[in-house]
């Protein structure tokens, strides 16, 4: 018998701390598999955020730095300027990237930093216990929005891909999900393309992964996938938001 699927060498043997069914584990695997398949593990340097994936430095087998909250794109900028030929990526959640770290991500994209950003959008603060995120849906309950997010009080969910696609320095922007196998395959393809573009020095690439948080959503992992499909995907439509290669060929 031949092995058709086993754990990626891009991951360490450390058991992940994530709650059962958390999509962080799935996305970690996709990034690790892409780095392994592109033969980038020897040189890759990743930057983790503050939030649920704060311990990602223990899970990825490449060199890692842990950034302060929201500053991963700035940290990655410093790393990339020192090692311009090495693949550098940030892995950030919605609170980290779309709230406290908005300035850093926008400006890293605008500089066309040759880095890859993986953005996990699960519409909630996970690590701190279910507070409202910048991507929380209108009406969605959170521990700091007990009656549901009120648009008049705090605005609507931030649409990062739509914003990033308007920035010149961003060469590839795609929103994906891992809610089923076809979408998971597409997500991996998108992450692969983002790293390939980085290695071609094309510019900044941004992959948003619409994700779940079963624990703070108060649902089982399987129910969470269904909730994601019914509630998040209409607000955060999947697809390619910017592909400079395609624009150039048209």
């Amino acid at each position: 018998m031949a092995i058709v699927y086993q754990k990626s060498k891009g991951l360490t043997d450390k058991e992940m701390h994530y709650c059962p069914g958390c999509t962080h584990g799935i996305v970690h695997k996709l990034v690790a598999e892409v780095l392994e398949e592109l033969n980038l593990l020897d040189d890759a340097i990743g930057v983790c955020p503050v939030g649920c994936s704060v311990f990602a430095y223990d899970y990825f087998s490449c060199d890692m730095q842990e950034a302060s909250h929201g500053r991963a794109p700035a940290v990655a900028t410093g790393i990339k300027r020192v090692h311009p030929n090495s693949p550098v990526f940030t892995y950030q959640g919605d609170g980290d990237l779309a709230a406290i770290g908005m300035a850093e991500i926008i400006h890293a994209a605008n500089r066309g930093e040759k880095i890859t950003t993986i953005f996990i959008n699960n519409a909630i603060y996970g690590m701190t216990g279910g507070q409202m995120a910048p991507t929380t849906l209108i009406g969605q309950k959170a521990t700091t929005a007990p009656l549901g997010r009120d648009k008049d009080l705090c605005g609507g969910p931030v649409h990062m891909c739509e914003m990033m696609s308007a920035i010149d320095g961003a060469v590839y922007v795609e929103r994906v999900s891992v809610n089923n196998i076809p979408n998971l395959n597409k997500a991996k393809k998108a992450i692969k393309k983002a790293f390939e573009l980085q290695m071609q020095n094309a510019g900044f690439a941004f992959i948003e992964v619409v994700s779940t948080c079963p624990t703070n959503w108060g649902k089982t992992p399987v129910e969470s996938m269904k909730w994601l499909e019914e509630n998040m995907l209409p607000v955060f439509p999947l697809g390619v938001y910017k592909d400079v290669e395609e624009v150039a060929s048209k």
């Binding site: 302060s68 900028t77 410093g78």
Partner: peptide
């Protein structure tokens, strides 16, 4: 950089590298 916050975190990244 876009701010002092970004600047010092770029320093962090470069020093770590």
């Amino acid at each position: 950089s876009e701010s002092e916050l970004a600047a010092i975190n770029m320093v962090y990244g470069a020093a770590g590298a």
